[in-house]
Computed example of a mutant assay.
Amino acid sequence: MKRDELKTAIDYYRTKVKEEMAGEKKINGQFIGPRNPTNKLDLDDLIHPERPFLSKDVENDWDSIYVTTFRFGTLKKPVSMVKCGHGTDLLGGMEFGSQLVQKGFIKSVKDLVPVFAKYKLGILDIFSETDVNNGKKMDIMVYECIDCVGLPNIGEPGCYFESGIITGIFKELTHKEVFAEEVRCWTSGYSFCHFSVEINHDPEGSLESQ
């Protein structure tokens, strides 16, 4: 995607973020979005998701086929998505994120958005960034996420692989302690994924200088 197309997509989804968070609920400590919940997640839910922006530069239905193939390879059985394998997905994502930096795909924070879009992982948006105590707190949104776009609301987030990727990237870039947690997701009723990221670093340090 070109820079102006990414900006258009991010502006569009930021509006949806504000709308959906304004009407959200919190149940048993978990944020729940506006889409109706279901206890069912089966094979039909994984197939042919729509990604309005990431599919624009792909002919025919190839983007949805690509996403479906990715899900078949990573989710194994649909029910396993959020019921087991959390640690494996997280660690796998951390290794992948670390390798993206080590191999030079990502050299700085500025590379995250174009790399995520180029390899169709999703449209990444650093929604907010704040200095806190001895570190930094960031809210990172991922729109049209390859793992979960179009899936039903089953009451909890499911993108442990992406949490791992974000953790691995920032650990490798900053060499600091990083914690990333997904707090909102397609599978908890939203049309975006929201990762709360904490980076602990020296007071003099900054992400831009890494």
Score class of each variant (00 low, 15 high):
residue 72 F to A: 10
residue 192 F to P: 00
residue 83 K to V: 06
residue 151 L to D: 09
residue 149 V to D: 09
residue 184 R to F: 00
residue 60 N to G: 09
residue 14 R to D: 05
residue 144 E to D: 03
residue 63 D to V: 06
residue 109 V to Y: 04
residue 17 V to K: 03
residue 134 N to Y: 12
residue 58 V to F: 09
residue 142 V to F: 03
residue 171 K to A: 10
residue 34 P to H: 02
residue 102 Q to K: 15
residue 63 D to T: 04
residue 170 F to Y: 15
residue 15 T to S: 14
residue 130 T to C: 11
residue 202 D to C: 12
residue 95 E to H: 10
residue 37 P to N: 06
residue 185 C to R: 03
residue 192 F to Y: 10
residue 109 V to L: 10
residue 138 M to W: 02
residue 31 F to P: 01
residue 10 I to G: 01
residue 114 P to A: 02
residue 201 H to W: 15
residue 110 K to C: 03
residue 173 L to C: 03
residue 46 L to V: 07
residue 131 D to M: 10
residue 131 D to I: 13
residue 191 S to W: 02
residue 91 L to N: 06
residue 144 E to L: 05
residue 122 G to I: 07
residue 60 N to F: 12
residue 104 G to K: 06
residue 34 P to T: 06
residue 51 R to F: 08
residue 10 I to S: 08
residue 105 F to D: 02
residue 1 M to I: 07
residue 210 Q to V: 12
residue 109 V to T: 09
residue 30 Q to S: 06
residue 5 E to T: 00
residue 164 G to E: 01
residue 141 M to C: 12
residue 165 I to E: 05
residue 7 K to S: 06
residue 167 T to R: 04
residue 166 I to W: 00
residue 116 F to A: 05
residue 96 F to T: 10
residue 142 V to G: 01
residue 72 F to H: 09
residue 167 T to I: 07
residue 208 E to I: 13
residue 201 H to T: 08
residue 208 E to L: 14
residue 114 P to E: 08
residue 28 N to P: 00
residue 122 G to Q: 05
residue 210 Q to W: 13
residue 159 C to L: 07
residue 168 G to N: 01
residue 37 P to H: 04
residue 78 P to H: 06
residue 71 R to Q: 00
residue 75 L to I: 15
residue 155 G to K: 08
residue 127 F to G: 03
residue 8 T to S: 15
residue 96 F to K: 04
residue 154 I to D: 03
residue 46 L to W: 08
residue 158 G to W: 05
residue 63 D to N: 12
residue 52 P to R: 07
residue 138 M to P: 04
residue 61 D to Y: 08
residue 141 M to K: 08
residue 44 D to C: 01
residue 15 T to C: 03
residue 117 A to I: 07
residue 188 S to N: 09
residue 142 V to K: 03
residue 117 A to N: 02
residue 77 K to Y: 10
residue 39 N to C: 01
residue 108 S to K: 09
residue 31 F to I: 13
residue 179 F to K: 14
residue 147 D to H: 09
residue 137 K to Y: 01
residue 145 C to E: 14
residue 15 T to M: 10
residue 18 K to S: 10
